[in-house]
Structure formats: C-alpha cells, structure tokens
C-alpha cells in the first residue's frame, strides 16, 4: 500500500462535500438570493435614473448596481465555508476524519483547497450571472448599462467573485477556531455587517483597517466609477485577503494544537 498523500485527503473532502444535499441547497440558495437581489437592484432603475440629480448621474454605476447582490451572497457562501468544518464538530465526525488523516495540517488544507475551488467557481459564475441579468434589465428600461468589455467592468466582476471566495475562506477559519456553527456565523455577520454599520464609533487607528474591511474598503472592487477614497481597489481587496490569510493561519495553529 503506498502511503496516504495530500491528494487522497483532497479526494475525501470532495466526496464529503458533494455527498451532502445541504451543499447543493446552499449553492442553489446562493444563486436564488444573488439573482433575486440583482433583479431588485436593477428592476426599477429606470424611474430612478430619470429622476436623478446631476451628481447622482455622475456616480451612475450600472456594474456596481448589478453586483450589489454580493451583500447577501457573502453570507450564504460564508455559511457554506463554515459548515465544511463545524458540521464535523457538531457530529464528532472530525475525530473520524483525523483517524483517517492524522496529519492535521493536511486535513485542514484539504478542506481549504476543496472549498476554495468550489467557492471560486461559484463566486465567479454568480458574479457573471448577476452582471448579465442586471445589465439586461437595465437595457430593457433604456437606461445606460455596461458591457463586459467596458472600462473596469471585467475587473469588477472577476474581483467580486474573488471577494466572495475570500469570504468563504474567512468562514472556514472562523469555523475552525470557534468549532460551532452558530458562533462562527454570528461572528461572520458581525464582521461583514455590524462593524461597517458602526464604523463611525471606532477609534481613529481602527478607521485605517476599515479600508481593507469586507463591505467597506474591500468592496470598492465592485465599482467601475472611480472612488477617490479608494484609488486602487485591488489593493483594498488584497488587504482583506491578507487579513483572511491571518485568520486561516491562526486556524491552522489551533487545529494542530487542540485535542478533539
């Protein structure tokens, strides 16, 4: 028998993920919610456009409008990432998994890689789909709309898909550190919604971090009309990815050390 390798652990995680109906339900939910929000965000844009002020017309960003679905989609994809780890803690299956793959970094890395693959594909497909749906609805109302070849459009759509994948990884990290679904999802909601909502209350040093925060600075990547506050949106997204990497790093450390 040849020694068990990383590829085996990857294969096992893929079998686990695809053999749960909840995976497919969550993905279906992701698309239903994403496309639904995109339709709502663009469906009435015609009236809005015609009654808009000059300043509002200047900031008119059909791409960002069709991608606002990210707001809700990040939660759904976060649930998917969380469950990859916390569902195993809830049942005790994590022990069985570690009996099969006692090298803990290998097991967690396999979960991260498989989830990344699924989240990158789902995130990209979702962002392209919401973009196309949103633009079609805008075109039907005869208001200015965007095309994939337009300036900054592809960057926003692809960047948006990566943003969602990064949130899924963040959720895996939270799930591993907190070991409970409810705790991890509550924390995720706090990070992506509560902190930005309370942004004004934080001390000055923290404001700098908000430039790289989900739903805040890191979400600048969704825009095609330049925002003077975030001249280089990919830097802001990169900063968020570094933060996610730090959380994942902590997850690897505690997963290695703790008894299960």
């Amino acid at each position: 028998m040849s020694p068990a390798r990383f590829g085996h652990a990857l294969h096992a995680e893929w079998v686990k993920l695809r053999s749960l109906q909840s995976t497919w339900y969550t993905l279906a939910c992701l698309f239903a919610v994403g496309l639904g929000v995109a339709a709502m965000a663009t469906g009435r844009a015609g009236d809005e456009y015609r009654s808009a002020s000059a300043a509002e017309l200047l900031a008119w960003d059909p791409t960002a409008r069709s991608l606002t679905a990210y707001l809700v989609a990040q939660l759904v994809i976060g649930v998917l990432g969380t469950l990859v780890v916390t569902s195993e803690y809830a049942t005790g299956l994590v022990r069985t998994s570690l009996v099969v793959t006692p090298r803990r970094h290998r097991l967690l890395a396999a979960k991260v890689v498989v989830t990344t693959a699924v989240a990158v594909v789902a995130g990209q497909v979702l962002m392209f789909a919401t973009f196309l749906l949103g633009q079609a609805l805008l075109a039907a109302q005869d208001v200015p709309h965007a095309e994939l070849g337009g300036p900054g459009v592809l960057s926003a759509v692809v960047g948006g898909g990566l943003y969602l994948a990064a949130i899924a990884l963040f959720a895996i990290g939270l799930g591993t550190i907190l070991r409970a679904t409810a705790g991890a999802i509550t924390t995720l909601v706090g990070v992506v919604f509560l902190v930005p909502a309370l942004a004004g209350l934080f001390p000055a040093w923290f404001q700098g971090l908000l430039d790289f925060w989900p739903t805040q600075g890191a979400a600048a990547v969704f825009a095609t009309v330049p925002n003077p506050a975030y001249p280089h949106p990919w830097l802001n997204l990169g900063g968020m990815c570094l933060g996610v990497a730090a959380v994942l790093g902590a997850a690897f450390v505690v997963f290695e050390r703790r008894d299960v």
Binding site: H8, S19, T91, T96, T101
Partner: peptide, 22 residues
C-alpha cells in the same frame, strides 16, 4: 457511533473514509 453526518448516505460516508487513505 453517532459520529456520522446524518445527511450523508452510508455508502458515501464509507467512501469518503476509504479514498482518504487511497
């Protein structure tokens, strides 16, 4: 014995464990 995911079919559960060790 409770350490299985209730939503997974018995065969898939065992398959995931088996492929994990090749």
């Amino acid at each position: 014995a409770g350490a299985v995911h209730g939503g997974r079919k018995a065969r898939d559960h065992l398959l995931a464990l088996a492929v994990g060790n090749g």
